[in-house]
Amino acid sequence: MKKITFLLYTTTILTAIFLISACGNDAPTDQNTDGVVLSGDDEIDQVSQRLSQDPNNAELYALRAEIFYEKNSYDQAIADMTAALSLDSVNIDYHHLLTDIYLDYFRSRLALQTMERAVAIAPEDISSWLKLSEIQLFLKMNQASLASIDKALRIDPQNALAFFFMGKNFEELGDINRAINAFQESSEIDPEMLDTWIKLGQLHASIDGNLAETFYDNAIEVDSSSTIALSAKAEYLWDQDNPEGALELYKTAIRKAPMDEKSYYNAGLVLLELDAMEEAYDHFTMAIENAPLYAAAYYYRGYAAEALGNNEQAVQDYEHTIRLAPEYVQAREGLNRLK
């Protein structure tokens, strides 16, 4: 009975989605001899052809939604997931995929509602409770997030990710001791969880710097190629009045990931502090080459240029900063100095 009910409904959905696909992309569309609207993308059109022959196949809608999602075509992806869930409303994987699409499309409230439905459908699915708690954490719903974590830990009392999210919630609530305890529990359950060691380093640095460096070293030991871990320890060393140590770590991060603009930028800031203006200028230039819209990198390259006496270059960089970020007060002050 359910399939008969959905037959007319999904045929209507199929037509609507094809129209959305046709209108939502800049690529030209066409019709084949079967009347199927083509997007011009072979991967999408192959699934569309299969759907024209099997319009009640929820997996095909989900498959095409995933392809649209990978191509950042969010409206089409959402339309296809709506069709998939109309055919298979209890599929938890579909709820998770739709949630991911909503989150990347900055529709966090819709993502929240989708995961609330997921845990209602499958209250024993720990991954759904964890995903729900993460969304609630993002939305600053800390008590609700902690309640979801409690549900997850009732299912799996040794879940490292649940304790990690618990620590994040307590940190946001200002309860640093409970946050540290939660992160510590997470690290004991899963010593390979990089983010946990970094959080422990940051929190200990805020209350007792003696242990912080050990936690940062643990993070680097977990993944020596992680620019996040290297930069976290570098920032700590910089705060501890050790800019030389920080610079060494930022340069290590650059060697590990030469396309990471943040490492060049941070190294440039340290070099400014060390009064190494030419080298700082070069590092900001590399940050700009890797991220041409990096307003702060333009500003500090201009600052370095001004310090080197290259006022023409400084003016160009300050003006470019303002074009990218009109509210950048320091860039306007720099222009006033030079003009």
Rank of each mutant, 00 (worst) to 15 (best):
H204C: 07
D190E: 08
K256R: 14
D208C: 13
V222Q: 02
D241K: 15
E248I: 04
D217C: 09
E188R: 13
M193P: 00
R255A: 14
K199P: 02
L247T: 00
A232E: 01
P243K: 04
Y250A: 14
V222E: 01
P258L: 01
K233N: 00
I254Y: 08
A257T: 03
S224Q: 06
S225Q: 10
A179S: 15
R255C: 06
S226Y: 03
I189L: 11
M193G: 00
A229I: 04
K199W: 09
D223Y: 13
E188M: 06
S186P: 05
A234W: 07
M193V: 01
D208M: 14
P243W: 03
K256F: 08
Q184A: 10
P243I: 01
D217F: 01
S224D: 06
H204S: 12
Y250S: 11
A182Q: 04
A253R: 08
H204A: 07
A219I: 10
L211C: 07
Y236F: 15
E185W: 05
I180T: 08
D190L: 02
S226L: 10
S186G: 02
E235F: 08
G209D: 06
E221P: 00
E213F: 06
W238H: 13
L237D: 00
N242M: 11
E248C: 01
K256L: 13
Y216S: 11
Y236S: 07
A229S: 10
K233R: 15
S206T: 07
R178H: 11
D239K: 15
L194W: 08
S224M: 05
D217E: 09
L200I: 07
I180P: 04
I180C: 09
N242A: 13
E244R: 14
E213A: 15
S231K: 09
D239V: 02
T252F: 03
T252D: 01
W238M: 10
S225F: 10
L203H: 06
I228A: 14
I254C: 12
A219Q: 08
I189N: 04
S224V: 03
D223N: 15
D223G: 07
